[in-house]
Design a protein around this nucleic acid. Structure first.
Ligand SMILES: O=c1ccn([C@H]2C[C@H](O)[C@@H](COP(=O)(O)OP(=O)(O)OP(=O)(O)O)O2)c(=O)[nH]1
Ligand SMILES: [Mg+2]
Length: 1008
DNA sequence: ACTCAGTACAG
DNA sequence: CTGTAC
DNA sequence: GAGT
C-alpha cells in the first residue's frame, strides 16, 4: 500500500512539474497566442491576421473580476452559490482507463515516454500493478463514460490501471498515509477523501481525520441545492422556431422524399464531381501529405469504402459516386480491407485519375459535342427527372442556353451540369435563341466574350436581348447547395413545401455590363441581402417545443445585451417539483409525430412501462420494421422472458434508452427522492475514481426511471421494481421515504470536500483529478489557486477557465446562441458559400438555454472541393471580428475532421459574457453521423452506441460500422476499422439500428 | 467477474 | 500515456 | 451501482 501511495504522489509531482511554468512565461505566452492556438505556421494565404488574442481586453477583464464586488464569489461561499445557481452541467462519466497492468497494455510508445520523463512508472508501477491492482480484467485503455446527468455530466476519473488503482488507493484510502511527498501534509492529504472515501464498500466510514474536519465546517444550507433549485423567473426566450414553413407533416422514417433526396444528392455530386475531376487527385494528394505527423487512426475511418448506395442507379450516378470517393480519400480496397486498411491509407492513393468512366457517346461512337449532348440529355430528360422528387425541380419551366466554355466536346463536367439542370426541371437548348429564359455561363470560365458571343451568335454583349440575363453557373449551384444542405438537417421530414429560392440576377450576372439584364427595375438591389437567405431561414431545430423551464429557472441569463445587470432573482421558492416538470412546451403548429399519445390516454402507465423497458440497456428489441408505430405499448416480442403483453406489462429491466422517447410528464410524485439521489449522484461523480463514476452513472439511470414514474414510490418494494434501481438504491429510497432524509448524504455534505471539489471542477480544464490534487495540496478557494501558492500551477486553459469562471458556468438563452451564430455563419459562408454550417448541440434540440454553441461545418465534396483549411481561416476571421476571444483547443493541422474549442461573445456589446463555443468539421460523407453525434444528447448517444455494440456494430461520429475489431487489451486501438454501414444521414443510422426516428428535441435522455 | 460510448486535443 | 472535454 |  505504501508503495502505491508513493507512486501516486510521484505521479502528481510529475504532473506538476510538467505544468511548471513561471507566471511570466505564462503571461508572455498569453500575450502572444492563446493556448493551443496556432502552434503551427499559418498559411500565408490568409488575408486577415488577428493579433489580438486576449491581450489587453482579457487582462482588463481579469482584473475587473478580481475587483468587482459582484465578482467576489471566489471563495468557498461564492463557490457554493455558483455551483448551485449557475448550473454548469457536467457529464457523468466514469472514466475507466486502465492501462494494462500487464505488459500487453503498454505500448512501446508509452514505455518510451515513461522512461524518458516519468520515473515512477515503468517498472515500478508494473510491480505495483500486479501486486496492488485487483484484477480488473484485461487492461483496456479507453475511457468509458458513465452519465452526464441531467444537470450534470460528469467525468469520473478514468482509471489508469497501473497507476490508477494505486492512485485510487492513495487518494481514497483514508487509512494509510505515508510518505510526505506532496507538499500537503498527510492530514491534508487524507482529507481529500472526504469526498470519496468510498471504494469497496466502506464508503461511509471516513477517516477520523476527515471527520474532525467535517466538524469544523459549517454545513449549513446545503440542502438539495442542485442545479435545479433555483428560481428566477425569466421570460422564455422567444419562439425557437426559426422557420415554421420548413416543417411539413411528414411520414416519418423511411419516407419517399428522403430517398428521393438522396438520389438528388448523388446526382449533384456526380455532376459537379465530374467537373472537377482533375482536381480531385490533387486534393487527395494534398490531403494525404497533410497527414503525416502523428498517424491518426481516425484517418482510416475516413477512408470509406462503401458500396454505392442502392439509390445509385443511373450509370451516371454510380460513376460519380465512385468519383466522389476517390476524390476525397484514398480508396480502401473494397469489402473488408483488413490489414490493408492501414497500409492503404499510407499508400499514396494512386488512383489513376484516368479512371475512365464511360462517358456517353454520340451516334458515331464519339464523345458528343456540347450541342449534341444537349440533345441527348433532353431526350432522356424524363428519366433524369424521375430521379429527383418533383418538389426539387426548381428549375422547371426555365429554358437555358448553357455555355461551358468549350462547345466542341462535352466534358465530364459539362455533362454533369447539364444532367443536373435537366434533372431539376430545366430545359436546355442546343442553340441559343431568344426564347431562352436565361443564359448560363460556366462560372470559372475566363472565356473571352468573343467565344461566348460566337456561341450565341451575337457580335457584342449589348446585342443580347435585355430580358435575358447572363448568369454564372453559381446561380444554379447556390440554390442547389442550399437545398442539399438543408436536406442534411431536415432529412427526417418531408420537404415538399420547401421553396427553393434562386438568387437574383443581379448577384450572379456574368458580365458586369449586363448586370441589369432581366432584372425587374422595381427590384433593383438596393441593399444586398446577404446571400443564403434560404439557409438562414431553416430551422435548426426540428422542434416544436422548447424548453422554457430552464429559462424560468433562471439558469440562463436573459438580457443579452448586458446580462450582468440583471439582478439576481429573488430566491423565489420554486419547488423542485415544478422543476421536474416538463420543460418543454409544445408549439401547436407542428404535427405531432405519429405514434404515442393515442392509446396512451387509456393507460396512463403504458408510457411509463414502455419507457421503463427502454431504460436499461439490453439487447435487441424489434424496431426493425420501419413503418414504426407506436413505441409505447408495443408488443415486445423478442425478449424471451416476456410473455405477450399483458394488460399491465411488467417492468422489464432492459431495453435501450435510445429506443423510446422520454416521457416528459409534468408532475413527478417522487421529486423528493429524486432530489436526494441527485445529490448523491453528484457526490459520486465528483470523486476521482472510476467506481464512483459508474456509481454515478447508475444513479443517473435510477433517477431517470424515477422521474418518469407516474406514481409515488411508497416502499422498498416499489423501488426495487423499477429498472435501474437495485437493492442498495432501494434501501436509500426507503430511508428517504421514511425519514425524509438520507444520512449518508448529510454526512457527505457536511464536509467541505464536496463543495471545494465542485468549485474547482467548475474551472474549465479542471477535472476531478486535478481538483482533488489541489484540495490535497490545501487549496480551498479560487483565490488560493490564483495566488499560485501551494505549488499550484494552472495550465493556460485553466487560467482562462478561472478568469471567466462565471461566464463559463452560466448558460445562455438560446436567443443569444442564435445571435452569435448569426454573426458567424455569414463569415463562414464568405469563405466558401457552399459550406454547411449549422448549430447543433442543445440548440438543435430546442433547449431554451444553451451551455455553449456547437457548430458543425462540412461541405459537399461532390465538386472536388472540400472545407479543408476553412476552419483555420474562419477562426482568424472570427478573431478579427471580435467574436472569438480565446482559444481553448485548436486543431493542429488542417484537416477535414477537426475540433475547435474556444470562447466567444457578441461583438461590440459592452458587458457581453463570454460563451463557450465549439466547432466541429467533418467529411461530407460522415455528415449524418456527425449530426447525430453533435446533436446528442450525450446519454442518447451512449445509448445508441451501446445498442450498436450489442448488435455487433460500432457507432461513432463518422458513421455506423460493422466488423470493427478492437484490441481486447486496449480498446481504443482498432485492429480493423471495419466497414461502414451508414453515415450520410441520421435516418439511415436510426434505421439500421432499429431505433425509431426521433427529432432532435426528442433525443433527450438527460434530465431535461 | 464483466460491462457500462467513442472520440479529440493538450501536455 | 493521462486528464479533460465533447 | 445495476444487470447479466
Ligand atoms: O460526453 C459527451 C458530451 C457531448 N456529446 C455530444 C452530444 C452533445 O449534444 C454534443 C455537444 O456537447 P455539449 O457539451 O455542447 O452538450 P449539449 O448537449 O450541447 O448541452 P449544452 O447546452 O450544455 O451545451 O456532443 C457526446 O456525445 N458525449
Ligand atoms: Mg452544447
Amino acid at each position: 500500500m505504501g508503495r502505491s501511495q508513493t507512486a501516486a504522489k510521484m505521479f502528481f509531482r510529475e504532473q506538476e512539474k510538467r505544468m511548471n511554468v513561471s507566471d511570466d512565461d505564462m503571461d508572455d505566452y498569453y500575450a502572444r497566442r492563446l493556448p493551443g492556438q496556432h502552434k503551427s505556421r499559418n498559411e500565408p494565404t490568409d488575408d486577415e491576421q488577428y493579433t489580438v488574442i486576449n491581450g489587453s481586453d482579457g487582462t482588463r477583464a481579469f482584473r475587473s473580476m478580481l475587483t468587482d464586488p459582484s465578482n467576489d464569489r471566489v471563495g468557498l461561499d461564492s463557490g457554493k452559490e455558483l455551483q448551485e445557481t449557475s448550473t454548469r452541467r457536467t457529464r457523468l462519466v466514469p472514466r475507466k482507463r486502465k492501462s494494462s497492468p500487464n505488459e500487453t497494455g503498454q505500448s512501446p510508445k508509452a514505455k518510451r515516454n515513461r522512461r524518458a520523463g516519468t520515473p515512477a512508472n515503468a517498472s515500478d508501477s508494473h510491480n505495483l500493478a500486479s501486486s496492488v491492482i485487483v484484477s480488473e480484467g484485461p487492461p483496456t485503455s479507453p475511457v468509458s463514460s458513465p452519465v452526464r446527468g441531467a444537470a450534470s455530466r460528469h467525468t469520473p476519473p478514468r482509471k489508469h490501471q497501473t497507476e490508477g488503482d494505486t492512485l485510487k488507493e492513495a487518494l481514497l484510502s483514508n487509512s494509510q498515509s505515508n510518505s510526505a511527498n506532496t507538499p500537503a501534509s498527510d492530514s491534508a492529504y487524507q482529507m481529500s477523501l472526504p469526498i470519496g472515501g468510498n471504494r469497496n464498500g466502506k464508503p461511509a466510514s471516513l477517516s477520523k481525520v476527515v471527520q474532525d474536519t467535517l466538524l469544523d465546517v459549517a454545513n449549513e444550507n446545503f440542502t438539495n441545492a442542485t442545479v435545479y433549485d433555483d428560481n428566477s423567473s425569466v421570460v422564455a426566450p422567444s419562439s425557437p422556431i426559426e422557420n415554421p414553413s420548413a416543417f411539413v407533416p411528414s411520414a416519418s422514417h423511411s419516407s419517399g422524399p428522403v430517398k428521393a433526396a438522396s438520389t438528388l444528392l448523388d446526382s449533384v455530386r456526380d455532376a459537379v464531381m465530374a467537373h472537377h475531376a482533375g482536381r480531385s487527385d490533387r486534393s487527395a494528394a494534398r490531403q494525404h501529405s497533410a497527414k503525416k505527423s502523428r498517424p491518426k487512426v481516425r484517418k482510416l475511418d475516413t477512408a470509406v469504402n462503401e458500396k454505392s448506395r442502392d439509390t445509385d442507379q443511373s450509370s451516371i450516378v454510380s460513376f460519380s459516386s465512385a468519383r466522389a470517393e476517390t476524390s476525397l480519400v484514398p480508396p480502401v480496397t473494397s469489402g473488408k480491407g483488413k490489414a490493408v486498411a492501414k497500409a492503404s491509407s499510407k499508400t499514396t492513393a494512386t488512383r489513376t485519375k484516368t479512371k475512365k468512366k464511360q462517358l456517353p457517346l454520340n451516334k458515331n461512337g464519339k464523345r458528343p459535342t456540347t450541342q449534341e449532348y444537349v440533345e441527348m440529355v433532353m431526350e432522356k430528360a424524363d428519366k433524369l427527372r424521375a430521379q429527383v422528387p418533383a418538389y426539387a425541380q426548381f428549375l422547371q419551366g426555365l429554358k437555358f442556353f448553357y455555355f461551358p466554355g468549350n462547345m466542341t466536346v462535352a466534358s465530364e463536367s459539362t455533362i454533369g451540369k447539364m444532367d443536373l439542370m435537366v434533372k431539376h426541371g430545366a430545359d436546355l437548348v442546343a442553340k441559343y435563341d431568344s426564347s431562352v429564359t436565361q443564359i448560363i455561363v460556366e462560372t470559372g470560365i475566363n472565356a473571352q466574350e468573343r467565344s461566348f458571343l460566337r456561341a450565341i451568335g451575337f457580335r457584342k454583349l449589348a446585342d443580347i436581348p435585355h430580358h435575358i440575363p447572363t448568369l454564372t453557373w453559381q446561380w444554379i449551384q447556390d440554390p442547389l447547395t442550399n437545398w442539399l444542405n438543408h436536406q442534411v438537417l431536415n432529412e427526417g421530414r418531408s420537404l415538399e413545401k420547401l421553396e427553393v429560392k434562386m438568387g437574383n440576377y443581379w448577384d450572379f450576372a456574368r458580365f458586369s455590363q449586363r448586370i441589369e439584364a432581366g432584372v425587374d427595375p422595381n427590384d433593383k438591389p438596393r441593399k444586398r441581402v446577404k446571400q443564403d437567405k434560404s439557409l438562414a431561414e431553416f430551422s435548426h431545430i426540428s422542434d416544436f417545443s422548447i424548453d422554457i423551464n430552464a429559462a424560468l429557472d433562471g439558469k440562463a441569463d436573459v438580457n443579452v445585451t448586458n446580462p450582468r445587470l440583471i439582478a439576481p432573482l429573488p430566491q423565489r421558492q420554486k419547488s423542485s417539483l415544478q422543476v421536474a416538470s416538463s420543460s418543454r412546451v409544445p408549439l401547436d403548429f407542428y404535427p405531432q409525430p405519429v405514434s404515442r399519445t393515442p392509446a396512451l390516454d387509456e393507460d396512463p402507465l403504458a408510457e411509463f412501462y414502455a419507457q421503463a423497458k427502454a431504460e436499461c440497456d439490453e439487447r435487441q428489441s424489434r424496431w426493425d420494421k420501419e413503418d414504426d408505430e407506436t413505441n409505447t405499448s408495443d408488443t415486445n416480442s423478442e425478449t424471451d422472458d416476456e410473455e405477450p403483453a399483458p394488460m399491465a406489462p411488467a417492468l422489464v429491466k432492459r431495453g435501450w434508452a435510445c429506443d423510446s422517447k422520454e416521457n416528459q410528464q409534468s408532475t413527478c410524485p417522487n421529486q423528493d427522492i429524486i432530489g436526494k439521489l441527485e445529490e448523491l449522484m453528484q457526490i459520486h461523480k465528483a470523486r476521482p475514481t472510476t467506481d464512483d463514476g459508474w456509481r454515478a452513472y447508475s444513479y443517473t439511470k435510477a433517477i431517470r426511471t424515477l422521474r418518469s414514474c407516474p406514481y409515488r414510490i411508497k416502499s422498498y418494494q416499489d423501488a426495487v421494481a423499477l429498472p435501474g434501481v437495485g437493492h442498495k438504491t432501494a434501501e436509500k429510497i426507503e430511508e428517504i421515504i421514511q425519514t425524509g432524509e438520507l444520512r449518508r448524504l448529510q454526512h457527505e455534505l457536511s464536509s467541505d470536500g464536496v463543495h471545494v471539489q465542485r468549485l474547482f471542477t467548475g474551472i474549465y480544464g479542471v477535472g476531478n483529478s486535478t481538483a482533488t490534487r489541489w484540495y490535497n495540496n490545501g487549496a480551498r478557494t479560487l483565490e488560493d489557486l490564483k495566488a499560485g501558492k501551494l505549488g499550484i500551477k494552472l495550465s493556460p486553459v485553466q487560467e482562462i477557465g478561472l478568469r471567466y469562471y462565471d461566464d463559463i458556468n452560466s448558460r445562455m438563452p438560446r436567443t443569444e446562441a442564435q445571435t452569435i451564430f448569426e454573426h458567424i455563419k455569414p463569415i463562414a459562408l464568405s469563405i466558401d458559400r457552399n459550406l454547411f454550417v449549422e448549430i447543433m448541440g442543445s440548440y438543435r434540440r430546442g433547449k431554451a438555454d444553451c451551455g455553449d454553441i456547437d457548430i458543425l461545418i462540412t461541405r459537399n465534396d461532390a465538386d472536388g472541393k472540400t472545407h479543408e483549411g476553412v476552419l483555420r481561416r474562419l477562426l482568424k476571421r472570427l478573431h478579427n471580428a471580435d467574436i472569438l476571444t480565446e482559444d481553448l483547443a485548436a486543431p493542429d493541422e488542417d484537416d477535414l475532421e477537426t475540433c475547435y474549442r474556444g470562447l466567444c461573445h457578441i461583438p461590440g456589446v459592452e458587458g457581453a459574457r463570454r460563451r463557450r463555443i465549439d466547432f466541429l468539421t467533418t467529411t461530407w460523407k460522415s455528415r449524418g453521423a456527425a449530426l447525430l453525434y453533435y446533436t446528442g444528447d450525450d446519454l442518447f448517444n451512449r445509448s445508441m452506441r451501446l445498442k450498436a455494440n450489442k448488435m455487433g456494430y460500432s457507432l461513432n461520429q463518422r458513421g455506423l460500422w460493422k466488423d470493427v475489431i478492437r484490441n481486447p487489451s486496449k480498446r481504443s486501438e482498432k485492429l480493423d476499422k471495419g466497414t461502414i454501414l451508414a453515415s450520410e444521414t441520421e435516418q439511415e443510422i436510426f434505421k439500421v439500428l432499429g431505433v425509431p426516428w426521433q427529432e432532435p428535441h426528442e433525443r433527450v435522455r438527460n434530465f431535461q
